[in-house]
Design a protein around this nucleic acid. Structure first.
Lengths: 362, 362
DNA sequence: AATTGGTTCTGAACCGTTACGGTCAGCTCC
DNA sequence: GGAGCTGACCGTAACGGTTCAGAACCAATT
């Protein structure tokens, strides 16, 4: 085996008896030197095992890394499990690919507050996806002098943003349930803050939630029900830290155990809703006759089972974030993109049974 | 809005009247200077809007980028749709995360042969996942003087490798079918080369396949059937370029149209097998009574429907690739990791009906 | 003969940092 | 009271490129 020679542009130039500029040009500006010389340069490079200009050194000089950083709140691997995050990731990847930019996933250890990884990432900009307001990594990103786009997060001064109208979308869903006659409902939501709280969430906790998306959706629900005179404080909201169907099921169980007369379970994600459906089935509750269940996101699996939900365009969101970041040499005017959502009325929602029906059958 | 001042470590040092080394130490080696001075440095940094040492310059100096490059054959976004690739990606991400390394997805435009992206990536090493032997991007990666690990690919001289025993695994599957009595089978496989060929694949094309995994699996099947005297050349092999269930279905249709007496469809991936099952259903063929269908990979959906398949540990494969890359300061001995697979006998395989049964019913 | 223009190549500055090998004052220890 | 140590800080030399303003040369034009 040959040992990799630490050949550099300079050593190559010396070997050839030309200037470093010329060697550089051989790679970057073929029109700046004669074809013959260029051929010789590349030939000698091959012979010496020179792998071409060092990307890092080039980045330093040109002040371009050719990559976009992506900051996620969770373990990197979470992004590959959650369909919504995955869709976003795919969209972002598409945008990067289209622009010939790499996508640098920043490693975040949620245990340690290891902000160093953010500082170490050689990128031209950041996309921040759904991290809590108070996340130190977000602060670290904002401290870096590169353009940033946040997604599914509250607007940050001077930073582009892409998202959906979570509030309006879930309000329309709620209004649908309300018009069907639902008043006594339960809510299942994802984690509201960085501390684990698997159980009921007080109104205070809901309002203080550090995750923008969850906070906004709960607020939308609260407003929608307030309009028809339902006291939100009496609506049970169950929170789950980890986002999976098992937790959707256990949250549904907790909710149904605490109040048997709930007529609908409103979940802030499809994953949770799918879990809730499993629990309903386990209890022999028919959906939607005995219990209405709704989700949020519009993932493929939800569509398959006919879940009533709000469909949001993950992929487009990711693409939009990428385009926003890559197309912005103009840092003066922060932009905000709000994508449309669609209310999907599936087979998991219907009118609640009356009290009589509940006790004496239909 | 404040304009980002291009403050540097040097300007900060000048402002403070200390050396650049001291400022550097304030960030990297707190023990090398008095707490008081460090406090002053950081304070002044904040005041001047100095965001901390530039990651690219640091990388140049330390010769560490803190990131691993990942090369995929397909569009980046393909990786987010294919469950096997996704599992690998997740495993790799976990390994990177554990080591505090970023994961840099290299943008590959399969249209243009834009190898430049490989040269532009500031990474400490590469993982190459299942690209064809003759892919120029692979060559570009190998030309870079950084450690590399290939996965699901043939061994490259001096390069670590991780994979499974595709040949042995599919042979065990084939032997199972053979012992059930199947002799007249059809095969559905993924793309064999970079050129599109949606249709039958000749034996020559099978042997020349540039995708190692597919080539090896077909060879394993060929060998298994040869052992019991089946002439492989007469076994129809249908190839599909794009990997999705729709293509699995159309390939199954093509196969069944060409030979109605096939008793089993052996697919080289679960996705294709799931598509084939859809087609069988559409035709009113009962599985496994009328037709045996098998897959390969062991994805969640396959498990759900009870597909007979080979389960391979994607996640572990990704993890292993990451560990191999990150734990190797020793370039002298290339290593090879072969992970175990498991034959899953589901409900989609059974004994073939005899000719009589086929024509006259059971 | 002088000017112009084009091609091809060069020299030197610069990108922002960290590694390495110091210096120097103050202190301890017999 | 001199040797030896320690803590705190500094100067210089890389790290490996890109870029820009010319220099040198030659041919064509005025």
């Amino acid at each position: 085996m040959h040992v990799r020679r630490p050949a550099t542009l300079a050593s190559l130039a010396a070997e050839l008896g030309v200037s470093r500029t010329t060697v550089s040009n051989a790679y970057n500006r073929p029109d700046q030197l004669s074809p013959e010389l260029r051929r010789r340069v590349l030939e000698t490079a091959r012979r010496l095992g020179y792998p071409g200009p060092d990307p890092v050194a080039r980045s330093l000089r040109t002040r371009k890394a050719g990559a976009v950083g992506l900051l996620l709140t969770e373990n990197l691997s979470y992004a590959f499990r959650d369909p919504a995050a995955l869709g976003f990731l795919e969209g972002l990847a598409l945008a990067c690919e289209g622009a010939g930019q790499g996508l640098h996933l920043v490693p975040v250890n949620p245990e340690r507050e290891d902000v160093a990884a953010v500082h170490r990432a050689g990128v031209d900009g950041f996309v921040v996806y759904s991290v809590p307001d108070d996340d130190p990594h977000l602060a670290a990103v904002l401290s870096r002098p590169v353009p940033t786009v946040v997604a599914d997060q509250p607007t940050v001064e001077g930073v582009d943003r892409v998202g959906i109208d979570d509030r309006g979308a879930i309000m329309r869903l709620a209004q649908e349930l309300i018009s069907l006659g639902h008043r006594r409902v339960g809510v299942i939501c994802m984690r509201l803050a960085r501390d684990r709280n698997d159980g009921f969430a007080t109104v205070q906790r809901q309002q203080d939630a550090h995750f923008h998306v969850q906070r906004t959706r709960l607020a939308g629900l609260s407003d929608a029900f307030a309009k028809v005179g339902v006291d939100w404080a009496r609506i049970p909201v169950v929170e789950r830290f980890d986002h999976n169907t098992a937790n959707g099921a256990s949250a549904a169980a907790q909710l149904l155990d605490s109040d048997r007369d709930v007529t609908a379970l409103i979940c802030t994600s499809d994953i949770l809703a799918l879990g809730a459906m499993n629990e309903a089935k386990r209890r022999g509750l028919r959906v939607p006759q005995d219990l209405t269940i709704t989700g949020f996101d519009g993932i493929a699996e939800a569509e398959r089972v006919g879940l009533t939900t709000v469909r949001q365009p993950f992929l487009e969101k990711g693409k939009a974030a990428g385009k926003l970041l890559l197309a912005s040499p103009d840092p003066t005017r922060p932009r905000e993109i709000t994508l449309d959502t669609e209310l999907i009325l599936g087979q998991t929602s219907g009118a609640p049974r009356t009290i009589e029906e509940r006790w004496f059958g239909p």
